[in-house]
């Protein structure tokens, strides 16, 4: 089974990288760009076929290590 994990900075927390990339896009002429938020994308292959077990385990991984929930949100998708 494969898990795809997305970690993003919480809405109310300043994302300096996103702000810098937004500025760069504007200076390149992409004026339509409103807000840019930068996050992390992770692919995990899991040695299990049990979907509900995988779901609980990946959630625990996110809470414990993959995201710092003080400033980050996470979501994930399971496949296979």
């Amino acid at each position: 089974m494969k898990a795809t994990v997305y970690v993003t900075i919480k809405e109310n927390v300043l994302d300096p990288q996103g702000a810098a990339v937004q500025g760069a896009l504007h200076s390149l002429g992409f004026k339509e760009v409103g807000k840019v938020r930068i996050g992390k994308y992770m692919e995990l292959t899991l040695d299990t076929n049990d979907r509900s077990e995988a779901e609980a385990r990946v959630k625990a991984m996110c809470e414990k290590l993959l995201a710092n929930t003080v400033v980050e949100d996470y979501r994930f998708e399971l496949e296979g």
């Binding site: 300096p16 990288q17 810098a20 710092n68 003080v70 400033v71």
Partner: peptide, 16 residues
């Protein structure tokens, strides 16, 4: 802070 011994977190410097 990551260990939870102190509250909060250290983010990227504002000016990067």
């Amino acid at each position: 802070t990551e260990a939870g011994l102190l509250p909060g977190v250290l983010l990227r410097n504002r000016e990067l």
